[in-house]
Amino acid sequence: MLQYALKRAVLALLVALTVSLICFLLVNLSTDVATAMAGEGATAETIDAIRHQYGLDRPLAVQYFEWLGHAARGDFGDSLYFHTPVAALVAERMPTTMVLGAAALGFALLLSIPLGVIAALKPNSWIDRLALTIAVVGQAMPTFWFALLLMYLFGVTLHLLPISGGDTWQHFILPSVALGYYATPAIMRLTRSGMLEVLESDYIRTARAKGLRNTSVLFKHALRNAVAPVVALAAVQLGFLLGGSVVIETVFALNGLGYLAWEAIGHNDFPVVQAVVLLISLVYIVLTLLADLANAWLDPRIRIA
């Protein structure tokens, strides 16, 4: 198990380095950074001065390793728009997004796993059809539109929940539901199909032949085997949720990383964009690593690989 974990960790580190390179190149190759920084109508001298001042005239490789070296120490430079260190900006906004992402995933899992299990236990029943409807609607409906519907119903019409800002925990309910609903269909369908397959397997028959109680057959023998692919998917989904939080945070005016990214893109604030993209990618990589380890714990056969 330890050997497996080490292998996975080394692999994750390599992926992280690759991602950092892509992250750096995306910004530096997509536009001329100096021109964009100088703003519209700047003279060629001004642009050259900026290019020299920020060291943008040096080879890309030198710039990359310098940026990487600083980034590794938590130094992402200063924001061009906010004029404060990027690290401080990100650290300030990070918790909001993490809380939102975790709450959204929690909502998605709480809704999708029980629904998926029940749907598998009673295929083609009304509850299976309800689950299917929820999945289809969730997959088809754009997140921002669902967010607006929630705001209209619970905020404007019923006055039950706040719809803007992030001051109290109530402020997180609607954004979490809106964001989490997006991850629900895939997790639920995978749980359902996994359970259906596992319930047909020989070892479930063996478990029943031992006279075990239904709850024991279902949770100890079936769910553990059915849920392994769900763990991997949930990690990927959480990554998507962090990305999707750009839209949701903007709609609900939550002051998180997503909102920061949106502001930074609008103002050509390259250091911030780079930092946010890199950070979300790193979170994604760490999540994948954790999912791999969780799967190895769930399924002993993986530990050999």
């Binding site: 397997s201 020989d202 070892y203 028959r205 063996t206 478990a207 029943r208 032949a209 031992k210 006279g211 075990l212 023998h221 553990r224 085997n225 769930l298 399924d299 002993p300 056969r301």
Partner: peptide
Amino acid sequence: RGNRLAMIFQEPMTSLNPS
């Protein structure tokens, strides 16, 4: 079942829970 009545199956490879 499993107490007074017991059964073993054809497929030993898949009849045990892998987890």
